[in-house]
């Protein structure tokens, strides 16, 4: 539990962070809440030479609403997301997912940007961002770019981001009729399976649906077949029950570990898809 030697620098602005990151080269690493990085360092699975702390950059944390879009700064800690009045009212799924993360210490330190960048296969936020069709706003040496969540999560701990880039914010249009449901791993409180469902309801029917699942596979992904089965159907328990049956079937290479076999995880994807959809429906 003792990391290798490293240097530490605190960035004062995004530009400063980008510059420090570039100057540090290969051995440079951003640190936000440190709740994924520091455990790896203590086990010496990660041995960065320079840590660039972005957690106190002015303007990088906070939750804003602009022109109907919600903007969450990358350095916003889970606790602030969980307790945000705006999110609780306008997009409770995000708040409830944040509230389900780890324990109070983790939520007071860990950030949404770090969670997204780290892309743990059992992290909660990726599933929710998929369901909300969120955008990841990234800054780099050559300026900014925007990647949708669907394109961002590529593989195990792998995202569409280069080592010299920084996530600045995540942005999405709030959806009230969305929900997150999670089966807890009892030790870490990460998700064995977590499902976020978002429904676009009009006139008693589901216009469209988006579902993100985490914990089941190498990285968070959408359940396209379930989404299709819901689209255009009347909003009802029967619709949800039958669409949820499809959940899990389309997943190949389901994760297995001491906490849950692949078979169980697959079955839980179905259960939690139904639960998330039911909760989303209840909010519509």
């Amino acid at each position: 539990m003792i990391p290798t030697t490293f240097e530490y620098a605190r960035a004062t602005s995004l530009g400063d962070a980008l510059q420090k990151l570039k100057a540090a080269g290969e051995g440079g690493r951003l640190i936000a809440g440190g709740h994924s990085l520091v455990p790896l360092m203590k086990l010496r699975l990660s041995e960065p030479q320079v840590l660039i702390d972005i957690s106190r950059i002015p303007g990088l944390s906070g939750i804003d609403e602009h022109d109907g879009r919600i903007i969450i700064g990358a350095a916003t800690v889970h606790h602030d997301v969980a307790s945000s009045a705006v999110l609780q009212a306008r997009c409770p799924a995000v708040a409830e997912a944040a509230a389900s993360i780890g324990d109070p210490q983790v939520r007071n330190r860990g950030t949404i940007g770090g969670s997204v960048a780290h892309a743990d296969p059992s992290a909660d936020m990726p599933a929710v961002l998929l369901a909300l069709d969120a955008e990841i706003h990234i800054e780099g040496p050559d300026g900014g770019r925007v990647v949708t969540a669907s394109d961002f999560f590529l593989d195990l701990f792998t995202v569409d981001m280069r080592a010299d880039e920084i996530i600045a914010s995540v942005q999405f249009t709030p959806v009230r009729s969305a929900a997150y449901a999670k089966l807890y791993q009892r030790a870490s409180h990460y998700a064995i399976v977590g499902v976020a469902a978002s429904l676009d309801v009009s006139g008693g029917a589901i216009a469209s649906a988006r579902i993100g699942v985490t914990g089941a596979t190498s990285h968070a992904r959408r359940l396209i077949n379930v989404e299709r089965a819901l689209a255009g159907q009347p909003l009802s328990t029967a619709t949800i029950e039958s669409a949820a049956q499809l959940a899990g079937l389309e997943l190949d290479e389901v994760n297995a570990d001491i906490h849950a076999s692949a078979e169980y995880r697959r079955a839980m994807v179905q259960v939690f898809t139904r639960r998330a959809l039911s909760a989303a429906m209840a909010r519509s």
Binding site: P39, D103, R186, A187, S188, Y190, I258, H259
Partner: peptide, 13 residues
């Protein structure tokens, strides 16, 4: 030991 940390060895809360 596969449960060699509190990430995998649960203590009741």
């Amino acid at each position: 030991l596969l449960t060699g940390s509190f990430m995998d060895y649960a203590l009741p809360r």
